[in-house]
Simulated scan of single mutants.
Amino acid sequence: MSVFDDPGHFGRLWAATYDDPGNPDPAPAVDFLAPLAGGGPALELAVGTGRVALPLAARGLTVEGVEASPEMVAKLRAKPGGEHMPVTIGDMADVPVSGPYRLVFLVFNTLFNLVDAERQADCFRNVARVLAPGGAFVIETFVPDPANFDRDEQVQVREVTEDSATIRMHRYDRAAQTFVRQTITFDADGVHLHPFAMRYAWPEQIDEMAGRAGLRLAERYADWDRTPFDADSRSHISVYRLG
Rank of each mutant, 00 (worst) to 15 (best):
R181Y: 00
P133K: 15
F124I: 01
P144T: 06
V157N: 15
A93P: 01
V97K: 01
V138W: 02
V155P: 00
A175Y: 05
M198Q: 14
I89T: 15
D189A: 15
D173S: 08
Y101A: 06
T161H: 10
G99S: 12
P144Q: 03
T110L: 01
D94M: 07
V191W: 08
S98C: 04
A165V: 14
D189N: 15
I89N: 11
R174L: 13
N109R: 08
Q156F: 10
T110G: 01
L114F: 06
H192K: 15
T88G: 05
G90M: 11
Q177P: 12
F149T: 12
D91N: 13
R174Y: 13
V87P: 01
N109S: 09
T141E: 02
V138I: 11
V180G: 01
R174M: 11
E162C: 09
R102G: 08
D122H: 13
R125Y: 00
V138G: 07
Q177N: 12
P144A: 02
A136T: 11
P96M: 01
E159L: 14
V157Q: 14
V87W: 08
R119N: 08
N148W: 14
F124Y: 08
Q156P: 00
T166L: 08
F105R: 07
P100D: 06
D152F: 06
Y101P: 07
L103Q: 10
D163Q: 15
T178F: 11
M198H: 10
R168D: 05
D173P: 03
V115S: 00
F196C: 01
T161I: 09
